[in-house]
């Protein structure tokens, strides 16, 4: 009989729970691990089959979800192990859920489809956005004015240069606490995802190295489809309220290094 996996662990992150385990891979040869999950107390169901010893249960959305997992090992002859002992993980809640929106572009839904040029029109970027994206909240529309793909200097099709995406938004008054920025990505480049530099009204906020994706988000836009290879990732961080002012404020996202990333949504929220 195939071995039961050991040391099953679950680590909650924003929108996803990372699983890892240990187990003999080759003798007997593992066909796959069948991962069973019970989400928020619902009935246990087959979640996924993978040959890897890791799995990212993604697409959990912005709410905190509690998931109980067990794994069955299936070998090359079709024999099944008894289930592993269970482990429970809880995903981290997004400010897109817990906060109140100040300005948002697109829906936080693991899809790029509502954004401009989505899901695969990146080749039109240089002609449709010759001066990059400059989006004013309340004036512009995501479907025409915020490109789904943010090119980087590694992208020949976008002129091999740094591109800036700008989000302008209005404030009646500076909030009492630091607001939070949420950038959800449906995918990034697999080997060269690069970094983004975030600034608020010209004040540098942070440089963020993006996670490696699957290099598919330039071509397809729905990370909720079964069997999708897209690898969503998330950037959420506090914006210094000292850099804000009443009236129009300007958030800039520069891409000084790497290839493209593909947006799901972007938003600024008051922190609860």
């Amino acid at each position: 009989m195939p071995d039961v996996v050991r040391r099953l662990r679950a680590t909650g992150e924003l929108g996803r729970i990372r699983l890892s385990w240990e187990g003999e891979a080759y003798h007997p040869l593992v066909d796959h691990y069948a991962i069973y999950a019970s989400v928020d107390g619902a009935d246990e169901a087959l979640l996924a089959q993978t040959v890897y010893a890791t799995f990212v249960h993604s697409g959990l959305g912005g709410r905190a979800r509690s998931v109980r997992y067990r794994i069955v090992t299936v070998d090359a002859a079709g024999r099944r192990s008894r289930p592993s002992s269970a482990v429970t993980g809880t995903s981290v809640e997004s400010v897109a859920v817990s906060g109140a929106p100040i300005a948002t572009v697109g829906s936080f839904d693991h899809k790029s489809l509502e954004l401009a040029l989505a899901p695969n029109g990146y080749a039109q970027f240089p002609t449709r956005f010759p001066n990059d994206v400059d989006f004013t909240h309340g004036v512009h529309a995501p479907g025409t004015d915020w490109a789904y793909l943010h090119p980087g200097p590694a992208d020949a099709w976008a002129g091999r240069k740094a591109h800036r995406f700008t989000l302008r938004f209005g404030l009646d008054a500076v909030p009492a606490a630091d607001p939070w920025l949420a950038i959800w990505l449906i995918d990034t480049h697999a080997t060269n995802p690069g970094t983004v530099t975030i600034a608020l009204n010209g004040t540098p906020v942070r440089d963020v190295a993006l996670e490696k994706g699957a290099t598919r988000g330039s071509l397809e836009g729905d990370a909720t489809l079964p069997g999708t290879v897209l690898k969503p990732s998330y950037v959420e961080l506090a914006l210094p309220r000292a850099a804000l002012a009443p009236g129009e404020n300007t958030l800039t996202i520069d891409k000084p290094a790497g290839s493209w990333h593909a947006y799901d949504a972007i938003g600024i929220f008051t922190h609860p």
């Binding site: 891979a25 040869l29 593992v30 066909d31 040959v51 890897y52 890791t54 490696k212 699957a214």
Partner: peptide, 19 residues
């Protein structure tokens, strides 16, 4: 792997693909 799979995991996949 060009899709960022860790070597440890990718070797498991290579094993079933070769099989």
């Amino acid at each position: 792997s060009e899709t960022g799979i860790t070597p440890a995991d990718f070797l498991r996949r290579r094993a079933v693909a070769y099989r």
